[in-house]
């Protein structure tokens, strides 16, 4: 392989995402611009939200977001928080990312009543009234005057399937 050709992803270290697809060196790696555009287009989370953050890949397709910047690659055990699973047809935000930044979402947020929210937190699927897009939605619950995100649900065929991981179910 020449110095200029694509290189493989090294799964066990943190590499900063390239700013744009044109700057990509690692095969299959998404660009920062694609991540920020996805969050804007899918959920309406403004790109400026992440003006002071950088995005990193560690593990195949697992994207992390951290405040500030570091030399890349950086040999640490954790960098900010996981935010997104890429390298698959439909990207999926993490529960923790949605709880942190999902209150800034302006679309694809399904607000659940307390009974439905409780069911959502068990990891079950349930029928919901939703006439928006299919795919991954922010599952939220109305409290103290505004929707508060709980996690991610996959909406298809009138059903919302909770993606809340085992360790966060209740």
């Amino acid at each position: 392989m020449s110095d200029d050709g694509p290189v493989e992803n090294v799964g066990d270290r943190f590499d900063r995402l390239p700013a744009t697809p044109d700057e990509r060196r690692v095969a299959g790696r998404v660009a920062r611009s694609a991540v920020v555009d996805y969050l804007d287009e899918r959920f309406g989370i403004a790109p400026e939200t992440f003006a002071d953050h950088t995005f990193w890949e560690k593990g195949a397709g697992k994207i992390w977001v951290v405040y500030g910047d570091y030399p890349s690659p950086v040999e640490v055990e954790g960098l900010g928080m996981t935010c997104l699973r890429t390298r698959q047809e439909f990207w999926k935000p993490t529960t923790d990312f949605v709880q942190r930044f999902g209150s800034r979402a302006t679309r694809n947020v399904v607000v659940l009543g307390d009974d439905a929210a409780a069911r959502f937190m068990t990891g079950d699927e349930q029928a919901v009234a939703w006439d928006g897009d299919w795919g991954y939605l922010v599952g939220a619950r109305e409290t103290a005057g505004a929707p508060a995100p709980l996690g991610v649900g996959l909406y298809t065929y009138g059903t919302l399937r909770s993606m809340v991981p085992k360790g966060r179910r209740r």
């Binding site: 405040y67 500030g68 055990e77 960098l79 900010g80 923790d96």
Partner: peptide, 17 residues
Amino acid sequence: LRHNAERLGVTATTVTR
């Protein structure tokens, strides 16, 4: 530590061992 930092949504934390 990592579990707590993720659950709390802290982006300013870097974890080293």
